[in-house]
Simulated scan of single mutants.
Amino acid sequence: MSTSGQIQEADIVQISRDGAVAIVALNYPKRRNAFSLNMRQALLQSLTQLMHHDECRAIVLTGADGTFCAGGDISEMKARTVLEYRERNQLPLDIFKLMVQGPKAIVAAVEGVAMGAGVSLAAASDYVVSASNARFACAFVRVGLMPDTGLFWSLSQRVGGGKARELMLTAQEFSGDEAVRIGFANQQVESGQVLAAALSVAQCYAQMPPLAIAHLKTALATGIDSLDEAIETEVNLQPILRRSQDHLEATKAFMEKRPAVFVGN
């Protein structure tokens, strides 16, 4: 597994590349990669850059030092005004919307703990690979808060409304095995193999037509809540894709019995 071809490296969020896949690592190990203000700012900047980086076709989100993300940084939870809290909460919401609606597929590689906002980041990803030693919890109510970073929407998308309500209200911890059983995670592998498994999935995404992936993510995030919306989304977006160079290339490659080369147009 090669992670050569550095795009950018910051202290608290590190980005490397494996071919067309960007690996984004949360890097705050002394606090188990807690979702601090600095990390939020760096992650939003990094993801925004990657979503507009032509050479990046898919993203793996992981954590340094065998831990995904322990949730919000308790040391930063001090008294503020309501307006200050609203401003601070906008950053994780911007990250959530970018992950869910952005044009690149995201695979979460979860090892160790994923608590609070860590669960939110995993849930907002398109695919979740969980290690056998992973531990998850929607831990917000334990510190007198309700879920944030888009978890109200993303958790029910993954596990259904009833199970999401249970996990949010009880803040009960669940294992990597349980995460797969209830549909939160797509795949479980042994500890130490998570990044390789996530990269394998991301490389599959990276080989897909970029424009189709981008429109599909938009549709899944915003355009299928009702029958009429689903039909309207199909009517509006499918003609665009049918006229794309990637679609023409796919059909031509099929007829010529060769691999397609997609460019995102």
Rank of each mutant, 00 (worst) to 15 (best):
Gly144Thr: 09
Gly144Glu: 10
Gly144Ala: 14
Leu145Lys: 07
Met146Cys: 05
Asp148Lys: 06
Thr149Gln: 03
Thr149Cys: 08
Gly150Cys: 07
Leu151Ser: 06
Phe152Cys: 08
Phe152Tyr: 13
Trp153His: 10
Ser154Pro: 11
Leu155Ile: 07
Ser156Arg: 15
Gln157Glu: 13
Gly161Ala: 08
Gly162Arg: 07
Lys163Thr: 11
Arg165Val: 09
Arg165Asn: 05
Glu166Asp: 13
Leu169Arg: 05
Leu169Ile: 05
Leu169Gln: 10
Ala171Ile: 02
Ala171Cys: 07
Gln172Cys: 09
Gln172Arg: 10
Glu173Tyr: 12
Glu173Arg: 05
Phe174His: 02
Ser175Lys: 02
Ser175Trp: 04
Gly176Val: 02
Asp177Trp: 06
Asp177Gly: 07
Glu178Trp: 04
Glu178Lys: 12
Glu178Gln: 10
Val180Asp: 06
Val180Pro: 11
Arg181Asn: 08
Arg181Ile: 12
Ile182Ser: 01
Asn186Asp: 15
Asn186Val: 08
Asn186Gly: 14
Gln187Glu: 15
Gln188Lys: 05
Glu190Trp: 03
Glu190Phe: 04
Gly192Cys: 05
Gln193His: 09
Val194Ile: 06
Val194Trp: 00
Leu195Val: 03
Ala198Leu: 00
Ser200Arg: 13
Val201Lys: 12
Val201Tyr: 05
Ala202Lys: 00
Ala202Tyr: 05
Ala202Asn: 02
Cys204Val: 06
Cys204Ile: 02
Tyr205Asn: 02
Tyr205His: 03
Ala206Met: 02
Gln207Arg: 02
Gln207Ile: 00
Gln207Thr: 06
Met208Phe: 01
Pro209Asp: 09
Pro210Glu: 00
Pro210Asn: 00
Leu211Tyr: 03
Ile213Ala: 14
Ile213Pro: 05
His215Phe: 14
Leu216Phe: 10
Leu216Lys: 05
Thr218Ala: 15
Ala221Pro: 14
Thr222Phe: 09
Gly223Lys: 10
Ile224Met: 13
Ser226Tyr: 04
Ser226Cys: 08
Leu227Thr: 13
Leu227Pro: 02
Asp228Trp: 08
Ala230Leu: 11
Ala230Phe: 11
Glu232Leu: 13
Glu232Lys: 03
Glu234Phe: 15
Val235Phe: 11
